[in-house]
């Protein structure tokens, strides 16, 4: 749904590949999960997305984020 000017887009969790670990700094919202490979990363992201009803976005640097829209 298109919502206007509200702070409800929250990053619920971050799923990073092992080699992308250095691109996630501490702070911000949600836990950071480290995955061994892309397959595991996709699976964790899918689970988190289904559980939190959030949407998975790809930052294209080995990091997926789950966002509640």
């Amino acid at each position: 749904m298109i919502t206007m000017a509200r702070l409800d887009k929250l990053i619920l969790a971050t799923v990073a590949l092992e080699e992308a670990r250095q691109y996630v700094a501490a702070g911000g919202s949600g836990p950071v999960y480290i995955a061994r490979d892309t397959e595991e990363q996709q699976r964790i992201a899918m689970y988190l997305s289904r559980i939190t009803e959030g949407m998975v976005h790809d930052l294209e640097n080995g990091i997926l984020i789950i966002v509640r829209h």
Binding site: Q42, A45, M46, S49, M55, V56, H57, D58, E60, I65
Partner: peptide, 20 residues
């Protein structure tokens, strides 16, 4: 284009899941 879904040249959103 990468994770980004388009209709013609119009950008819609970033889809992270390969399955999706």
């Amino acid at each position: 284009q990468g994770p980004n879904v388009f209709v013609d040249d119009l950008h819609f959103m970033n889809v992270g899941l390969a399955e999706a």
